[in-house]
Simulated assay, not measured.
Amino acid sequence: MNSSAYPVPEQSVIFEEEIKKSVFITQISHTPSIDEAKAFVQQVKIQHSGARHNCWGFVAGRPENSMMWGFSDDGEPSGTAGKPILAQLSGSGIGELTAVVTRYSGGIKLGTGGLVRAYGGGVQQALKLIQTIEKKITTRLRVELDYGFIAIAQSELSKFGALEIASEYSEKVVLIVEVEVNQVDALTLSIINKSGAKAMVSLFENN
Protein backbone atom coordinates (compact mmCIF):
# COMPACT_ATOMS: atom_id res chain seq x y z
CA MET A 1 0.00 0.00 0.00
CA ASN A 2 1.38 3.40 -0.99
CA SER A 3 1.08 5.56 2.09
CA SER A 4 1.92 9.00 0.70
CA ALA A 5 -0.75 11.67 0.44
CA TYR A 6 -1.93 12.83 -2.98
CA PRO A 7 -4.01 15.76 -4.29
CA VAL A 8 -7.73 15.41 -5.10
CA PRO A 9 -10.12 18.03 -6.55
CA GLU A 10 -11.76 20.31 -4.00
CA GLN A 11 -14.74 21.05 -6.23
CA SER A 12 -16.11 20.50 -9.73
CA VAL A 13 -15.03 22.71 -12.65
CA ILE A 14 -16.44 23.44 -16.13
CA PHE A 15 -14.58 24.69 -19.20
CA GLU A 16 -16.40 25.49 -22.45
CA GLU A 17 -15.03 26.39 -25.87
CA GLU A 18 -16.16 26.49 -29.50
CA ILE A 19 -13.98 24.88 -32.19
CA LYS A 20 -15.15 25.09 -35.84
CA LYS A 21 -18.78 25.51 -34.79
CA SER A 22 -18.63 22.50 -32.41
CA VAL A 23 -19.16 23.36 -28.74
CA PHE A 24 -17.06 21.34 -26.28
CA ILE A 25 -18.07 21.42 -22.60
CA THR A 26 -15.59 19.80 -20.20
CA GLN A 27 -16.76 18.96 -16.68
CA ILE A 28 -14.42 17.53 -14.06
CA SER A 29 -15.59 16.26 -10.68
CA HIS A 30 -14.12 14.59 -7.58
CA THR A 31 -15.00 10.86 -7.76
CA PRO A 32 -13.37 8.72 -5.02
CA SER A 33 -14.46 5.38 -6.54
CA ILE A 34 -15.21 3.76 -9.91
CA ASP A 35 -18.93 3.63 -9.02
CA GLU A 36 -18.95 7.37 -8.30
CA ALA A 37 -17.03 8.02 -11.54
CA LYS A 38 -19.65 6.11 -13.54
CA ALA A 39 -22.47 7.87 -11.69
CA PHE A 40 -20.98 11.27 -12.62
CA VAL A 41 -20.74 10.20 -16.28
CA GLN A 42 -24.43 9.19 -16.20
CA GLN A 43 -25.38 12.46 -14.57
CA VAL A 44 -23.67 14.47 -17.34
CA LYS A 45 -25.23 12.26 -20.05
CA ILE A 46 -28.67 13.04 -18.64
CA GLN A 47 -27.82 16.74 -18.31
CA HIS A 48 -26.66 16.86 -21.95
CA SER A 49 -28.93 14.19 -23.44
CA GLY A 50 -29.27 16.28 -26.61
CA ALA A 51 -25.54 16.15 -27.34
CA ARG A 52 -24.18 13.70 -29.89
CA HIS A 53 -21.18 12.73 -27.74
CA ASN A 54 -20.42 12.65 -24.01
CA CYS A 55 -16.88 11.27 -23.97
CA TRP A 56 -15.16 10.55 -20.70
CA GLY A 57 -12.14 9.35 -18.74
CA PHE A 58 -11.55 8.77 -15.06
CA VAL A 59 -8.79 8.16 -12.52
CA ALA A 60 -10.80 6.81 -9.59
CA GLY A 61 -7.98 6.24 -7.08
CA ARG A 62 -4.33 7.19 -6.66
CA PRO A 63 -3.05 9.11 -9.74
CA GLU A 64 -0.64 6.30 -10.69
CA ASN A 65 -3.00 3.35 -10.08
CA SER A 66 -3.93 2.33 -13.64
CA MET A 67 -6.27 -0.39 -12.27
CA MET A 68 -8.63 2.47 -11.39
CA TRP A 69 -8.63 4.14 -14.82
CA GLY A 70 -11.36 4.07 -17.46
CA PHE A 71 -12.36 5.92 -20.66
CA SER A 72 -14.84 5.96 -23.54
CA ASP A 73 -14.98 7.59 -27.00
CA ASP A 74 -18.81 7.50 -26.86
CA GLY A 75 -19.24 7.23 -30.64
CA GLU A 76 -16.28 9.37 -31.71
CA PRO A 77 -13.63 7.63 -33.88
CA SER A 78 -11.60 5.18 -31.78
CA GLY A 79 -8.73 6.81 -29.88
CA THR A 80 -9.78 10.42 -30.58
CA ALA A 81 -11.60 11.26 -27.33
CA GLY A 82 -11.40 8.87 -24.36
CA LYS A 83 -7.64 8.27 -24.56
CA PRO A 84 -6.67 11.97 -24.88
CA ILE A 85 -9.00 12.75 -21.93
CA LEU A 86 -7.45 10.00 -19.79
CA ALA A 87 -3.91 11.02 -20.84
CA GLN A 88 -4.49 14.52 -19.45
CA LEU A 89 -6.04 13.19 -16.22
CA SER A 90 -3.38 10.55 -15.55
CA GLY A 91 -0.61 13.03 -16.33
CA SER A 92 -1.99 15.67 -13.94
CA GLY A 93 -0.81 13.94 -10.76
CA ILE A 94 -4.30 14.44 -9.28
CA GLY A 95 -6.29 11.45 -8.04
CA GLU A 96 -10.00 10.61 -7.77
CA LEU A 97 -11.33 12.66 -10.68
CA THR A 98 -13.55 12.14 -13.72
CA ALA A 99 -13.77 14.30 -16.84
CA VAL A 100 -16.74 14.24 -19.20
CA VAL A 101 -16.43 16.23 -22.42
CA THR A 102 -19.75 16.95 -24.11
CA ARG A 103 -19.69 17.82 -27.81
CA TYR A 104 -22.49 19.62 -29.62
CA SER A 105 -21.46 19.17 -33.25
CA GLY A 106 -21.60 22.15 -35.59
CA GLY A 107 -21.49 20.10 -38.78
CA ILE A 108 -17.84 20.79 -39.64
CA LYS A 109 -15.59 17.72 -39.43
CA LEU A 110 -12.50 18.23 -37.26
CA GLY A 111 -10.57 15.13 -38.40
CA THR A 112 -8.91 12.71 -36.00
CA GLY A 113 -6.06 15.09 -35.09
CA GLY A 114 -8.52 17.92 -34.50
CA LEU A 115 -10.66 15.74 -32.24
CA VAL A 116 -7.65 14.58 -30.19
CA ARG A 117 -6.59 18.23 -29.72
CA ALA A 118 -10.14 19.34 -28.88
CA TYR A 119 -10.86 16.65 -26.29
CA GLY A 120 -7.39 16.63 -24.75
CA GLY A 121 -7.10 20.42 -24.86
CA GLY A 122 -10.46 20.96 -23.15
CA VAL A 123 -9.44 18.72 -20.25
CA GLN A 124 -6.03 20.43 -20.08
CA GLN A 125 -7.75 23.83 -19.73
CA ALA A 126 -10.27 22.52 -17.18
CA LEU A 127 -7.45 21.02 -15.07
CA LYS A 128 -5.91 24.51 -14.77
CA LEU A 129 -9.10 25.64 -13.00
CA ILE A 130 -8.98 22.90 -10.35
CA GLN A 131 -8.17 23.70 -6.73
CA THR A 132 -6.87 20.61 -4.94
CA ILE A 133 -6.77 19.41 -1.35
CA GLU A 134 -4.44 16.75 0.02
CA LYS A 135 -5.83 13.27 0.65
CA LYS A 136 -3.97 11.79 3.59
CA ILE A 137 -3.77 8.03 4.12
CA THR A 138 -4.27 7.28 7.83
CA THR A 139 -4.47 4.30 10.17
CA ARG A 140 -5.27 3.80 13.86
CA LEU A 141 -2.89 2.75 16.61
CA ARG A 142 -3.47 1.44 20.12
CA VAL A 143 -1.07 2.93 22.66
CA GLU A 144 -0.95 1.32 26.12
CA LEU A 145 1.13 3.00 28.82
CA ASP A 146 1.46 3.84 32.52
CA TYR A 147 -0.13 7.01 33.88
CA GLY A 148 3.30 8.56 34.38
CA PHE A 149 3.94 8.62 30.63
CA ILE A 150 0.72 10.31 29.51
CA ALA A 151 2.24 13.79 29.13
CA ILE A 152 5.22 12.42 27.17
CA ALA A 153 2.97 10.34 24.91
CA GLN A 154 0.60 13.24 24.20
CA SER A 155 3.55 15.47 23.36
CA GLU A 156 4.84 12.87 20.90
CA LEU A 157 1.39 12.37 19.36
CA SER A 158 1.10 16.10 18.79
CA LYS A 159 4.59 16.20 17.23
CA PHE A 160 3.61 13.56 14.65
CA GLY A 161 0.17 15.06 13.94
CA ALA A 162 -1.69 12.11 15.50
CA LEU A 163 -5.29 12.61 16.65
CA GLU A 164 -6.63 10.99 19.81
CA ILE A 165 -9.85 9.17 18.86
CA ALA A 166 -10.64 7.43 22.16
CA SER A 167 -9.11 6.76 25.56
CA GLU A 168 -9.62 4.31 28.41
CA TYR A 169 -8.27 4.80 31.92
CA SER A 170 -8.09 1.67 34.07
CA GLU A 171 -4.97 0.00 35.47
CA LYS A 172 -3.13 1.44 32.52
CA VAL A 173 -4.00 4.13 30.01
CA VAL A 174 -5.06 3.00 26.54
CA LEU A 175 -5.19 5.61 23.77
CA ILE A 176 -6.60 4.99 20.29
CA VAL A 177 -5.01 7.44 17.87
CA GLU A 178 -5.25 8.17 14.17
CA VAL A 179 -2.04 8.99 12.31
CA GLU A 180 -0.76 9.16 8.74
CA VAL A 181 0.48 5.74 7.61
CA ASN A 182 3.91 7.09 6.70
CA GLN A 183 4.38 8.39 10.27
CA VAL A 184 3.53 5.10 12.05
CA ASP A 185 7.06 3.70 12.37
CA ALA A 186 8.63 6.96 13.54
CA LEU A 187 5.84 7.63 16.06
CA THR A 188 5.97 4.07 17.44
CA LEU A 189 9.75 4.20 17.86
CA SER A 190 9.61 7.63 19.49
CA ILE A 191 6.96 6.65 22.08
CA ILE A 192 8.77 3.39 22.95
CA ASN A 193 12.10 5.20 23.33
CA LYS A 194 10.68 8.07 25.40
CA SER A 195 8.89 5.64 27.74
CA GLY A 196 11.96 3.45 28.26
CA ALA A 197 10.24 0.64 26.32
CA LYS A 198 7.38 0.57 28.84
CA ALA A 199 4.70 1.72 26.37
CA MET A 200 3.10 -0.76 23.96
CA VAL A 201 2.11 0.43 20.49
CA SER A 202 0.14 -1.77 18.07
CA LEU A 203 -2.18 -1.41 15.09
CA PHE A 204 -5.75 -0.95 16.31
CA GLU A 205 -7.99 -3.73 15.01
CA ASN A 206 -11.51 -2.40 15.04
CA ASN A 207 -13.70 -5.52 14.98
Rank of each mutant, 00 (worst) to 15 (best):
E18W: 00
E18G: 06
I19E: 00
I19A: 09
I19G: 04
I19W: 05
K20F: 11
K20S: 11
K20V: 01
K20Q: 15
K20C: 05
K20W: 07
K20T: 09
K21I: 08
K21R: 13
S22E: 00
V23T: 14
V23Y: 09
F24H: 02
F24I: 03
F24S: 01
I25T: 12
I25D: 07
T26Q: 12
Q27N: 13
I28N: 04
I28G: 07
I28H: 05
I28A: 03
S29D: 15
H30S: 08
H30V: 07
H30E: 07
T31G: 02
T31N: 09
T31A: 04
T31P: 04
P32F: 09
S33T: 15
S33I: 02
S33P: 01
S33L: 10
I34D: 07
D35M: 09
D35T: 12
D35P: 00
D35L: 10
D35W: 05
E36I: 08
E36A: 15
E36G: 10
E36F: 08
E36V: 07
E36T: 11
E36K: 13
E36R: 11
E36S: 12
A37R: 02
A37W: 04
A37S: 15
A37T: 02
A37H: 05
K38W: 08
K38V: 07
A39Y: 03
A39I: 10
A39C: 09
A39F: 03
A39P: 06
A39S: 12
F40N: 01
F40L: 00
F40I: 03
V41Q: 03
V41C: 04
V41M: 02
V41A: 04
Q42Y: 03
Q42K: 12
Q43G: 01
Q43K: 13
Q43N: 13
V44M: 13
V44T: 11
V44D: 07
V44A: 04
V44E: 13
K45M: 13
K45N: 13
K45S: 12
I46F: 05
I46G: 06
I46T: 14
I46C: 02
Q47W: 06
H48A: 12
H48M: 14
S49H: 12
S49D: 14
S49A: 14
S49V: 07
